[in-house]
Amino acid sequence: MDAVQFLQNFLNGISIGSVYAIFALGYTLVFSILGIINFAHGAIFTLGAYLTYSLAVGQFGIGGLLADLQLPFQFSFTISLFIGAILSGMAGVLVERCAFRPLRTRGADPLLALVSSLGVALVTVNLLQYLVGSEIYSFPSDVYGDIRPAFLLHIGEKLVVVRTVQIIIFAVSMVVLALLGYLIGWTRIGKALRAVAENASTASLLGINVDRFILYTFFLSGFLGGMAGSLVGTSFGIAGPYFGVSYGLKGLAVIVMGGLGSIPGAVLGGMVIGLAEAFVPSEYSAYKEAVAFAFLFAVLLIRPQGLLGSSQIQKV
């Protein structure tokens, strides 16, 4: 591989890696607070993509029950992305209410929370299929306004190409990461969240309303999941309601890679896996889907706490 090819792969990798990062952050936030993996996260990813699509295009469905249902309004892409993510965050809160809280208040086996979240995922995905059909939804190419679709960089004889969408994805992800970093590191809410993650019972003794912070966490998680779904959707289209499932599974590899519950770990893990996938030569692209999971295995063997995780592994 020459330097130009390397640069091309690197650019492709950090763009998709940045989305993996914000998506995986949603998983990791919930894990850090509850010690549970929310399997509905992949479904929220899909939901977010559909919501943003509807708001930006002003139409609900191509197929399904809501086929050709027009919305009375239509927003610009930026606003749609934001509202879509907020609605996804609210869906995240709903997931907490339905699938997690009843079990938590009873002190049930954490395995059950896993099953109930899988149940919610199943309902969401199939409800979506019922409502909007299994057609492919593709954002119109002028969704960002009238800008060129790609940038071409000539380096000697060689060519490096970057789609505008890739740049937008990367930029939006970076902004989101920076804001989240600020929220968690420098604000009162962030401090309280960290306290709850550290030890929920101590936090509640300190007068922190733990239930409320769990809700905040789920909102943030849903927000990030929906945002990631929308970004991926604008780049590659929404390939039917099952579209989030493979991202959901890949996200698991990302958080194990970075260290379960570690926020910087999720970002690093996302970047590593995004880059690793981008560097798979195209002859072997059929094996690309397995790269993230091969990493997961390697991490379990060599460094089970993940790249940036703490060494103690207790939570279920």
């Binding site: 699938a99 049930a108 109930s116 899988l118 149940g119 919610v120 199943l122 309902v123 409800l127």
Partner: peptide, 14 residues
């Protein structure tokens, strides 16, 4: 069908 399957999972675990 599958929606009901999912609901069954949620209700059963709760």
């Amino acid at each position: 069908r599958l929606i009901i399957n999912g609901l069954v999972l949620v209700f059963a675990s709760i």
